[in-house]
Design a protein around this nucleic acid. Structure first.
Lengths: 225, 225
DNA sequence: GGAATAGTCATTGGATCCAAGGATCCAAAG
DNA sequence: CTTTGGATCCTTGGATCCAATGACTATTCC
């Protein structure tokens, strides 16, 4: 799928702003003033505006007419709904991967997952990186570009650093994560499509539930002050 | 899900251009010059540019840097991939609808489908309209906003008038369509989630196959001259 | 006569300019 | 002291201007 890439500058700008939000450098709920971003990137407001519109289409930010843009604060129910959809799609990808994956593919999955085995020393963010890699590998094997694209777009709806926090703060979740991945690999190896789909689905739903709980706790804290 | 709606003008512009493409007024493969669109809409090029970028994000058009935008010509394999994803999501929606649909909901579905029963007199485009309504009703009942949104976005990737042509030119397909809908309604009424999902999945896949074949015939014709 | 190159043209991309609208702050009145 | 009304300011949205680049054409050389 050849990316037409309308304009290098606008796309780069969008990518840069997205990265800053994903990394938490621009926090959830923060105001995004076009002039600030433009000066911070050394360009004029025009490409910034278009980039913001692109991010809005992805759902990462909200733009109120004449009132500016803010990084969207996901509601817990929205996180749950989104992860239900993602779970379905990742399950589909995993099922499709069963008949397509090779021995090399399985080895790669194991390697990606071993990086986060219980007891491993992890730098900040590396556990989400490994997690992302695991899923991306499966999307690649699934052999459906559109499917991969839709999942990617869904994942861009929420800041990535939050998922990192969820994993970092809870060794228990990290361990669960690891074992869920192991079960998925086992199902792929056994060529059990039904189980592969079910395990992946459960895995994503569980991750979504953790994320939704994190946002619930966050909003409770914010409301109290 | 409150739509932030960044700017009325840009969104309206995007909607207008999208409508023109969907209706076939702007044909597949046509060049889209910003200046023409701007003059045709009585506005400046700025909102047109942003609207085009929005349409590009949806995949309806392709923008090559410095070379302008064209209405994307979907490749048959792309149609098939996309409809596989859509089939999965519509199946999910249908499964979820089983436990949520009411008697009134079932009646509405029957009414929407009866409009296209074999032998009914149909005006141009009304069969796709009825088809769209049938699916939209189910999305509403499924009770997952994000799911409905993702399906909507996927549907916006291909011009709508082509689907209309596919149905209009083939009474046989229209009839098949009607019976597939009937089976889906029956499964919903019987509260058989598994069957509802399977029937909807098959229904969407079949529609996708027809659409892909249409594009195959089209490209064959074009290449011959 | 054909091909290559240079020059012109058309169209997009980015910057700047101007208008419009909402928020905030201050003052005045109840 | 509180509330309401107005004025000012800040930020975004749309229009216009200028630069950059790819396409088309004509001319010249082989």
């Amino acid at each position: 799928m050849a990316k037409p890439s309308a304009s290098a500058l606008v796309d780069d700008t969008a990518a840069e702003i997205r990265a800053r939000i994903m990394s938490g450098e621009i926090p959830i709920g923060a105001q995004l003033r076009q002039d600030d971003l433009a000066k911070s990137l050394g360009i004029s407001r025009t490409p910034v505006r278009e980039a913001l519109r692109q991010l809005q289409a992805g759902g990462l930010i909200e733009v109120m007419p004449r009132r500016g843009a803010v990084v969207r604060v996901p509601a817990p129910w929205d996180v749950r709904e989104t992860y239900e959809v993602r779970a379905e799609l990742e399950g589909m990808a995993c099922e499709r991967a069963v008949s397509r994956i090779t021995g090399d593919g399985l080895r790669e999955l194991r390697r990606a997952n071993d990086a986060v085995r219980p007891g491993a020393i992890l730098s900040a963010g590396s556990s989400t990186a490994a997690n992302d890699e695991f899923h991306t590998l499966i999307h690649g094997v699934a052999g459906n570009e559109r499917l991969a694209k839709v999942i990617r777009e869904i994942n861009e709806a929420f800041p990535r650093n939050v998922s990192a926090l969820v994993l970092q703060d809870n060794p228990r979740h990290r361990e669960d994560n690891f074992h869920e991945h192991e079960r998925i690999i086992a199902a792929l190896e056994a060529e059990d499509a039904e189980t592969a789909r079910r395990e992946m689905r459960a895995h994503v739903l569980s991750a979504g539930e953790q994320l939704a709980r994190w946002y619930e706790r966050r909003s409770a804290t914010v409301f109290k002050g």
